[in-house]
Amino acid sequence: MSEPTKAPSSIKRASSRTRTRKPKKNQIPIGIAVAIVLFLIGIYLAFTNPRLSIFWFTGLAFGFILQKSRFCFTAAMRDPLLTGGTTLTRAVLIAFAITTVGFTVIKYMAYVNGSPIPGQGFIAPIGIATAVGAFVFGIGMVIAGGCASGTLMRVGEGFTMQMLSLLFFVIGSLVGAYDFGWWKLNFIQDAPRVFLPDVFGWVGAVVAQLALIALLYFLALKWEQKSKAA
């Protein structure tokens, strides 16, 4: 398995540092073995608990895609200010647009059929707890170099730092759960939950949301061009 000879570098390096490279290991055989084991676990779950197998396979897909595309919600929020780049921000907006349409189709069909609309538990109350929580979370994810999904993904990549961060994410969650009663009593129980179709109607909500996403996309694009020129 020899690497193809590289085209001569266009970059002239001052010192010709031809450090002897360690021969790289081919990890694909281990990868294939791991893939087979992961698949078999999924099959086992499918027979014992089909619902769990769905969670297993979608989880594998989420992890695989996140890693392959280096997708990172943290960078999408942080990079516009820190580096001026908005490629990831715009990719996240694209994901918002696609899922808005996909989710609404599912929800609307349930609504028309008279069955309960799925996933309404994710319409969270809006209040001071949301603002404080999101703000604290935002600081945390930038410092730790990854949000919840990003941290899990980097644990899979072998980062010790994110393993530590995951441990403290769990501890923080537990303390947060302990304090939750106080927050709920004071700030959450009266906070409103707003499902946009209740305000704008189904079509209106989708159009309004897609328009907002488009506007943010445009602003992100302009921001990148502006920071590049500066």
């Binding site: 390096r13 540092r17 960078a75 942080r78 990079d79 820190l82 170099g145 990854g146 980062f159």
Partner: peptide, 18 residues
Amino acid sequence: MNEIIIDALGEACPVPLI
């Protein structure tokens, strides 16, 4: 023509980029 080497091994994003 200089060559500068920066060791950002073990640094999480966005530190290497900055």
